[in-house]
Amino acid sequence: MESEERSAAQQVGLDRVGVRYGRRTALREVSLSLGRGVTGLLGPNGAGKTTLLRTLATASTPDTGTLSVLGLDPLTPTGRQALRRRLGYLPQNPGLPSHFTAYDFIDYVGILKEISDRQARRTEARRVLAEVGLTADRGRRIRKLSGGMRQRVGLAAAIVGDPELLILDEPTVGLDPEQRLRFRELIAGLGEGRTVLLSTHQTEDVAALCHKVVVLDHGTVRFQGTPAELALLARGRVWSSGERAPGALAAWRTGVGTFRNIGVPPTGASLVEPTIEDGYLLLLDGDGDGDRNGDGDGDRTPADAA
């Protein structure tokens, strides 16, 4: 009974998944378990985020390990085909056919998502365009839309057919603050009742949206837990001072003129409440190889943080 509940809760499961591109290892024995809600995927450039998302989106096949996505095995043709009917994927910087109108493109994506009934497809295209706030611009050609609008067209394409699993690869890149806020609203809404995996460099997005965060670095999972637990990694390691602390791993002058330092605080330092950004920086930069446990796998858990 407990096992069944766990299986229902687990929407995405990876067990020792590895991906290589020639001699380069993109993912190294990644094991993950994701449930419903929005999960943030953080990591520096080249960490393997896009490879992980492409693997989950069935765009590429792992060399080793096993996957279970929505209870399906994407490594088999039938499993992959069934999964494609239930997922939405927004790749990083997706190109769009510029001579299509937004509506025509979404309608076309509807066909590719096997919505064969014309009326149902039209209704769905109008729904998703309304959901991303493009109703008024649906008749405009994509080449005449702003960058933010195009990003929203891409998101609309991803959510056609109301997929159970939504994979978004850096959807807020290049957006202005207002557009990012709109995107957060959108994604937060989409995360209700479905599984959303969101890759981003923006720790604020993770803090604002995600109930879970995974940090990937050099193809390995360095952390998985809640955003609060990621921040907790830096508890007692962030302090404020009038001067840049010489031993700090990272330090910067804040808007109020004091320095925010991360590292091993000196005695009597004025400790401040850490953010997930602090935890993230500390996790990646704190000890060079990032393996603060010294257990070799570099994967930090909330228990480690505590």
Binding site: R54, R84, R85, P94, P97, V109, I111, K113, E114
Partner: peptide, 22 residues
């Protein structure tokens, strides 16, 4: 070649309709 030329291939390649039927 439309989707490829416009860089929309990553978005479209994982959509359900198999390539041979397209």
């Amino acid at each position: 070649t439309r989707m490829h030329r416009h860089g929309a291939q990553p978005l479209c390649e994982v959509l359900a309709l198999p390539l041979w039927r397209r």
